[in-house]
Amino acid sequence: MTTPKTPKTLSREAAGWWRKLQAEYDIADEAGRLLLQTALESFDRMRECQGAIKKDGQVVKDRFGQDKPHPLLSAERDARAQLMQALKALNLDLEVTPHPGPGRPPGR
C-alpha cells in the first residue's frame, strides 16, 4: 500500500508527524486520514500560538496599561485539546510507561 500524500495545509513539522504516524500506524481509511489531518492542523495552530506567546510573553498590557494574560493562551489550550481529542479518536493515545510505586518517577 502506498503512503497517502501529506496534506499541503501542514507545516514542515506537522508533515513530519504525518509521515511518521502513517508509517507507524498505516491509517488507510479516509475518516482516519481526516482525523489525523485535523489533529496536525491543531498541532500547527498550537505551535503558532506558542510562538506568539514566546515573543510577547505570557502577560501583556491591555489598552489601559494593565497586565492581562496573553489572549492566545486560551487558543493554545484549545488547539492542544483538539489535538489530543483527534489523536484519541484515532486511538493514538500516548502510552506512558508505568513506574513502580506512587508519586513521580525518580529523577523528574
Rank of each mutant, 00 (worst) to 15 (best):
Y25M: 12
L90S: 02
Q37P: 06
C49W: 03
L40S: 02
L87W: 04
L40W: 03
D62V: 00
D67Y: 07
T97M: 08
L87N: 04
V59N: 06
T97S: 08
P69S: 03
L34F: 13
R45E: 12
P100G: 15
A81Y: 12
R80P: 09
D29Y: 11
A81V: 15
E48V: 13
V59D: 06
A39V: 05
L35I: 05
P71Y: 07
A89D: 10
L73W: 05
H99Q: 06
D26L: 11
D56N: 09
G51W: 09
S42M: 06
E95R: 10
R33F: 05
A31F: 14
S42I: 04
L34K: 15
G51E: 11
A81G: 10
A52P: 07
L34A: 14
K88S: 13
G101K: 05
A81W: 12
N91R: 13
Q50V: 12
F43E: 05
L72A: 06
H70D: 02
Q50K: 13
N91D: 14
P71S: 07
G51N: 11
L90C: 03
A86H: 02
M46P: 07
E76N: 13
G65F: 00
A89N: 08
E95N: 09
A89T: 07
R45F: 09
L40F: 03
T38Q: 11
L72H: 05
L34T: 14
L83M: 14
L87P: 02
G65D: 00
T97Q: 10
P69L: 02
S42C: 09
I27Q: 03
I53V: 06
C49K: 03
T38S: 12
L90R: 02
V60H: 00
K61V: 01
L72K: 08
K88D: 13
R33Y: 06
E30M: 09
V60L: 02
